[in-house]
Design a protein around this nucleic acid. Sequence first.
DNA 1: TCATAATAGTGTACGATGCATAGTATAAGA
DNA 2: TCTTATACTATGCATCGTACACTATTATGA
Lengths: 115, 115
Amino acid sequence: MEPLMESFTTELRRGTLTLAVLSQLRTPQYGYSLVQRLEKAGVTIEQSTLYPLLRRLEKQELLTSNWDTTESRPRKYYVISEYGSDIYEQLKKEWETMTAELKTLLEGDENDETD
Amino acid sequence: MEPLMESFTTELRRGTLTLAVLSQLRTPQYGYSLVQRLEKAGVTIEQSTLYPLLRRLEKQELLTSNWDTTESRPRKYYVISEYGSDIYEQLKKEWETMTAELKTLLEGDENDETD
DNA sequence: TCATAATAGTGTACGATGCATAGTATAAGA
DNA sequence: TCTTATACTATGCATCGTACACTATTATGA
């Protein structure tokens, strides 16, 4: 992809990544599994994006975490907190509103399309 | 609004602002009018966000501009370029894809909602 | 008339985020 | 044994949205 488009799409994804991650954490997930889970849903997220995001969300108390060392390999599991669920619901509504507004704008410009 | 929500929604808007602005520039608009036009459509954009955005888009050759000094007050009019329209269409498709994917994810989490 | 608000734009500085990159370490498979 | 997959941490950069400060003209209205 053209570098300019790349940077625009990156900016488009911004913020929605938080939403995507929060949506998956009603059941405990660890970072690496989340990357692949989201990938399957069509949402690519780099490790270098996800791990800091998870730590940030935990610091903000939207998530809690605990290490599981019983399995073959240590994994840090994250779950959404009550507060996190609250924020998530609000954010989800915000996103839906925004999406609807933007949709209206973008449809509005198709009035006398030339193609 | 809670500061945390504020920062999340700011990040959510990111990128979509470019899309919103581009969608309005099939007819020439100047900065100040755009702010109000978008506001009416439910999209709040600060002057301190819009003006730099317009200049950036012009630098990237998605827009062209010219000063109109014939009216009571000098205004800088921007229009989308052919290249800009091209990028806009691509970006719009990107956004639609992303929106659909995210929608699936967000609906997926409503399986056994407790509220 | 003088103050205030609205209009219209520029410039600087800061914080947040996504990502590239590098590094650590273990497990599994060829 | 060598490579690949798994799993996470840490640093640094570029971009963008916004607060804030500033300039300047036009309308409004007390």
